[in-house]
Design a protein around this nucleic acid. Structure first.
Lengths: 112, 112
DNA sequence: TTCTTATACCTAAGAAAATTATGTATGTTT
DNA sequence: AAACATACATAATTTTCTTAGGTATAAGAA
């Protein structure tokens, strides 16, 4: 099993984190929230967003409900019961990884 | 210009950070050092490592010297003068990105 | 009222960057 | 002698992203 999630494949875990905090969101809303939370650094494209959500749904980690607001449909995502467990695992792994990475990036200042 | 380096394309910047700290290293050594510095989390495969180094060399960011140790050759990499400038730019960007990501991962605890 | 922008979903083609597999060769340890 | 670590490299494949294209409703500006 690979441990190099983050510089490849971190997007799904980021989405899971947001959903685990917010409870229930739709795709468009998720991408806006991600951008907010990272001070504009994370700009999730639609071509990445929707396939990733579909994959997580297919894995049984997310489930959906379609709601009509006015004349427009929104597809709401939330974690399944099984998904809550898997999500917290993945989020913890990512946290640890990011912490180690940050340690590396801020260490080694004694050179110049 | 894309801002989503990290969950894709962070490897080269990580290598630049290590080289900027250590000054001069060869490929195999770089991969071992990266693993050390991240408590084993970052396991760079050879198929990722060498093409990435070759690309950075082709970009003029790294330069090489081959040394013979016993009967075995080592290819040492270091930053070029131009490379030092570009490396520090990329490292700063990555730092900021990782900081924002960490903020997101550790925020939103007020849910349960 | 028409144009632009924002909202809201989606897929397909292509590129980028990784993994996996394979190859060569030397040195060390069991 | 066999296994493992060092040390380089490339090719085939897969994953995951960007870019581009498509549909449609709603709101605001010109």
């Amino acid at each position: 099993m690979s441990k190099n999630h983050l510089y490849k494949g971190g997007l799904s875990t980021i989405l899971l984190k947001i959903l685990s905090d917010e409870g229930r969101m739709y795709g468009y809303q998720l991408s806006k929230r991600a951008k907010e939370l990272t001070n504009g650094d994370l700009d999730i494209t639609e071509g990445a967003l929707y396939p990733t959500l579909h994959k997580l749904e297919a894995e049984g980690i997310l489930e959906t409900e379609i709601e009509k607001v006015g004349n427009r449909k929104r597809k709401y995502y939330k974690l399944t019961e099984e998904g809550q467990y898997k999500a917290s695992e993945r989020i913890d792994e990512l946290k640890e990884y990011v912490m180690n990475l940050q340690g590396m990036l801020n260490g080694g200042m004694s050179h110049g």
